[in-house]
Design a protein around this nucleic acid. Sequence first.
DNA 1: CTCGGGATGCGT
DNA 2: CGCATCCCGAGG
Length: 182
Amino acid sequence: MKKLSRRFYNRDTVCVAQDLLGKYLVHRVNGLKRIGKIVEVEAYLGPHDLAAHSAKGLTPRTQVMFGPPGYAYVYLIYGMYYCMNIVTEEEGHAAAVLLRALEPVKNIAERTQGPGLLCKAMSIDKNLQGKDLLSPDFHLTEGDDSAFTLVKRPRIGVDYAKHWAKRHLRFYIKGNFFVSKR
DNA sequence: CTCGGGATGCGT
DNA sequence: CGCATCCCGAGG
């Protein structure tokens, strides 16, 4: 399937987040392609967005967010799970989209309904921090283009972000079984 | 150096 | 609701 281009990621973050629904995430592990369909995402708009890690400024951890679009921002959370983001917009605009849930398509052996679980199932960890998502073994492709209803809700676990916590920046495919429960 | 807390998930 | 488990980032 056709790989998503750099240009795809170099756009308004809300647009990218919504357009990512239905696309395929591909990671080749031990010669085997693991593929999952993106069914739930969250948009983190930039340093002005108090829920975004980039709101704390440029640090060693978040510097990839400040870089060019189409790269993976992977970080460890609660000492035991990884979360994967895709950097969006032009270099210097520190925004990203968090992948929250996948629907298994191929070679997926574990649960994928949550940001930590999907990274485990796809073997995504700190080794992929800063990795180019136009790589042969790690990228996104066009996917299931069947129609769906888009649901917009507040983001999960960002109560510390004051009024930004109320913004509807979490997007998912209505009725999809693999959307994270909470 | 210490220390507080986290874009989670699971069991009670 | 508690807790595992550890890195990050702020402050001394």
